[in-house]
């Protein structure tokens, strides 16, 4: 290995989209190679855990960590990479705020296992469940322990920067890599610790070119109930519950511009503590009524409040602070 700064990327409980988003910086991936030694990146190269363990502390300059913490292995690797990394970035929605897999925090592990291992196609008369330790004739077999809830990265280790998105857009990744390379050469300054990088500071609405006219609505509509979706008018004004007003910009408003409402994958806008609370305020402000019954009827049009307000942010939200018995591990 040369004396170039070291780079690592790891996926914990995630889908792999963040890795593909990094590969989708295309030609720039060769800049990564020119400026960094890739010390650890399981999807792309063959360094193993023992190779990371052998490195001195803080030997890796930049680690992009994606995925939430769903099991004991995720946590162990998060701690290992924290120790070995100078800058640890919570990369993508799962690491930042839990993302869609965080919706499992509404359910106990038992219910999650039952849904998986007693499904309509499962042939499991003895009710077998995966165990973190199993005895076979040759000895013990171990698989990581499934935790009661999914945690965000900063709930288990300190994080230096947050890069939101599901996944972060490749243009943003390219810009961040350029910035880090410049900073390492002394040509630029890194943002302050704890900053959100690779994103804007306002909302998706600021990037969306759809027209906004009236500011109020009389009903929320599901997209399939609309005979025709106006290709140029604000989706929220057409009654489609679009999460743009609460969501951080930086994505280029790709979804609303393709006729699909924003679902909030870039997380809360700058300064917003709880995504759901901000979105509720935003929706409340467009409802055109002073009559409580009518307001209730309009709100009933939001058929899945949990999925609407916390699809990406449940694990990291204020709601996440209220714990059930199974979440604290008191009940199996």
């Amino acid at each position: 290995m040369s004396d170039k700064p070291k780079f690592a990327m790891y996926w914990a409980a995630s889908c792999g989209g963040c890795e593909i988003a990094v590969l989708n910086i295309h030609e720039k991936i060769l800049d990564v190679d020119a400026n960094f030694d890739v010390a650890f990146w399981p999807v792309a190269m063959d360094a193993k855990y023992k190779d990371v363990e052998a490195l001195p502390d803080e030997a890796i300059t930049l680690t992009l960590f994606n995925g939430g913490i769903r099991n004991s292995e995720n946590e162990a690797i998060a701690k290992l990479l924290r120790k070995k990394s100078k800058f640890l970035v919570a990369f993508g929605s799962c690491a930042c705020e839990g993302c869609i897999p965080g919706l499992a925090n509404f359910s106990s592990p038992k219910d999650v296992f039952d849904a998986a291992y007693d499904s309509v196609s499962t042939d499991n008369p003895d009710g077998v469940r995966p165990q973190s330790s199993v005895t076979v004739p040759e000895g013990e077999l171990e698989i990581p322990k499934f935790y009661p809830v999914l945690k965000t990265l900063d709930q288990v280790v300190p994080v230096d920067y947050y890069m939101p998105g599901c996944p972060p857009e490749s243009t943003q990744i390219g810009a961040v890599i350029d910035l880090v390379i410049k900073a390492l050469k002394g040509e630029a300054e890194l943002p302050p610790a704890g900053a959100t990088i690779g994103a804007g500071a306002t909302t998706v609405c600021d990037e969306c070119s759809r027209k906004r006219n009236i500011k109020t609505i009389k009903a929320f509509t599901r997209i399939q109930d609309l005979e025709h979706v106006d290709p140029e008018l604000c989706l929220l004004e057409q009654g489609i519950p679009c999460n743009g007003p609460a969501t951080r910009n930086g994505c280029g408003a790709l979804c609303p511009l393709a006729g699909a409402q924003c679902i909030g994958c870039y997380g809360p806008a700058e300064g917003v503590i709880d995504f759901g609370a901000r979105l509720m305020t935003a929706f409340a402000s467009v409802i055109d009524s002073d009559d409580q019954d009518e307001i209730d009827r309009i709100l009933d049009g939001l058929v899945d409040p949990a999925g609407q307000f916390y699809r990406f942010s449940l694990a990291g939200s204020l709601l996440g602070a209220a714990k059930s018995a199974w979440q604290t591990g008191e009940e199996k």
Partner: peptide, 26 residues
């Protein structure tokens, strides 16, 4: 394991094409 078969319950069916994508970004 992440539990999609459990937490998709209660969601509007038309939203599933944008939820199940998170099973796999590949």
């Amino acid at each position: 394991l992440r539990g999609f078969e459990k937490f998709c319950i209660g969601r509007p069916v038309e939203e599933l094409p944008r939820i199940v994508t998170s099973i796999c970004g590949v």
